[in-house]
């Protein structure tokens, strides 16, 4: 086996790692966010803004700091948009606008779900 073959095999292994590992982790990470949004929605429905804000602070506020994987695998414009949705949700919670907050949480859920949807292997994404 020549040195070049070894380099190519290592490169192929790197590519496999780049394709498989982050995709698996990314899905886990995003699913955790979706669950957090569900919890926040539940708190909003119960009009428990204190719990909703606490959950927001713990789970969503540091979205862009904690999600290095999401940032690495999705267009940055989409993650910026998601950040905007998160901030809007916070404002609604602070103003106790429960209906609007619920609406924003739904939009945020769809937004984050869309982020991961783009990384899934499917015919729709290929074409």
């Amino acid at each position: 086996m020549t040195a070049k073959t070894i380099v190519v095999l290592v490169t192929a292994a790197v590519l496999l790692f780049l394709l498989i590992y982050p995709a698996v982790c990314l899905h886990a990470e995003v699913n955790a966010y979706l669950e957090n949004i569900d919890s926040i929605k539940e708190a909003i429905r119960e009009k428990d803004d204190a719990r909703a804000l606490k959950l927001y602070g713990e789970k969503l506020a540091l979205w862009d700091e904690k999600n290095t994987l999401i940032l690495a695998f999705t267009p940055h414009a989409e993650t910026e948009d998601t950040k905007d949705f998160i901030i809007e949700l916070k404002h609604c919670l602070e103003r106790k606008e429960y209906e609007k907050a619920l609406e924003k949480a739904d939009l945020l859920y769809a937004r984050i779900d869309h982020l991961i949807e783009g990384t899934r292997l499917s015919w729709e994404n290929i074409f």
Binding site: L15, L18, A72, F73, H76
Partner: peptide, 21 residues
Amino acid sequence: DMGIPLLFGVIPIITILLIHY
């Protein structure tokens, strides 16, 4: 374009390299 993740360039380049090989 800073808005495009670096991996969007890296993964296709590595793929092309392997296809060529």
